[in-house]
Design a protein around this nucleic acid. Structure first.
Lengths: 230, 230
DNA sequence: ACCTGAACACCGTTCAAGT
DNA sequence: ACCTGAACACCGTTCAAGT
């Protein structure tokens, strides 16, 4: 009996790469999808692709996943498990650290950010993140209601920032696209586009990190000052 | 004026007829794509669908359009032709009016906003919009470089706001999803998520318009106060 | 309840061949 | 140069049938 169990254990260990036929489950599906995302990108995560990684047909997944959007949302929440705030420093430092960590996670899986904007998340890890952010803003002296609104703005900006820069990085033609934008700005007609022609390519100056930092400071400073409507 | 832009957009839509067999051209392709977007949604704008509306095969489009992403980008710029600032009022009023008009246009074609974040636009109408925004911020006393950065933050937020709320509105299951989020917030464990449990559903209070307005005020106020890095 | 194969109605992109 | 049909390699989702 024990012998058998050990053998089984060793077998399953050596089979670790890809179990010949694991039981289907929500967890197994998400694990397989994450693996595919790492190896081939979000674009390749399809019902069919995930199913084939699990040695089954796409139809079998519908017991655990409502549709493709649901699959993506569950994936996002799995990723958010790795988001955490720094332990030291004042509330502002920890707030920005938490947000930067969130952005970094999205950056690690670039195409995820795009989806995060339009698919309102409500998984446990997302709720934990929201709670953390609200708590830090409260520490900073904001009223609960204002903090709740400000967290929305901060998260929206962080997500959008990640979506924007992630795809600049990942898309095969990104260089060409950026070059085209660069050229458009340089070639701006001073008559028609005076404010672009005057500044030129200043738009593109400064690293992405600096700009995120500045934008977060903007929003935090604004939230401390601008009264909420009504 | 945002109202006006949207109305005009929809009017010019319904007037457009479908020629039995028009010559293929960039313009014809975009016109056909806009028509499909109005009738069936962005998700239905595929090379194949657009081609079939023009009585040809998908392969024929590749003379005028590099790929699907390029098609979408050209579409977005066509939409931005209808974005304009109010003529009266101080710079802040006109700035917010321009941004709200931009958001309304994206709202009229909800799925467009999502794409706008990750596909850096550089069409003529987009450049006009950027130039206008920079000019208004300059009028408000911002240095050119800061204005350029602030415009990026404002546009990114406006686009993300549109993408977020547009899909809440359009997705068939949006009600269920929102209800689920609502339930999650209400059911938050005060031990694990104190800051959510305390505030409850305050997150969802306030109309989308008010929140956009507040967020824009936040960013503008911040840009006037927070010094740019370096 | 869970799983499956097959079917339906779609995709983007490439390419040789035509005009 | 422009246009085309056909081909290749994919999609999401449903459903009757099995276990």
């Amino acid at each position: 009996m024990a012998q058998y169990a050990t053998t089984k254990l060793l077998q399953s260990a050596s089979r670790r790469e890809r179990p010949a036929k694991a039981a289907l489950s929500r967890e197994a599906i998400i694990a397989a999808a994450l693996q595919i995302m790492r190896d081939e990108g979000l674009a390749r995560i399809s019902m069919r692709r995930v199913a084939s990684a699990l040695d089954t047909g796409a139809a079998s997944l519908y017991v655990y996943v409502r549709d493709t959007e649901d699959l993506h949302a569950q994936l996002l929440d799995a990723l958010l498990a790795y988001v955490a705030a720094p332990r030291d420093g004042d509330w502002r430092h920890r707030l920005k650290g938490l947000l930067r960590c969130y952005v970094n996670v999205l950056f690690a899986y670039p195409e995820m950010a795009r989806m995060a904007i339009s698919t309102p998340a409500n998984g446990p890890n997302y709720l934990r993140l929201v709670d953390g952010l609200r708590g830090l803003l409260r520490e900073g002296g904001l009223a609960d209601a204002v903090a709740a609104w400000a967290v929305d703005v901060l998260l929206l900006h962080a997500t959008a920032h990640a979506a924007e820069h992630a795809s600049w990085k990942e898309t095969p033609r990104a260089d060409q696209t950026m070059a085209a934008l660069f050229a458009s700005l340089k070639a701006a007609d001073p008559q028609a586009l005076p404010n672009i022609a005057r500044v030129g390519d200043e738009l593109l100056a400064g690293g992405a990190g600096n700009r995120l930092d500045w934008a977060l400071d903007l929003i935090i400073a604004g939230a401390l000052v601008v009264p909420p409507p009504r």
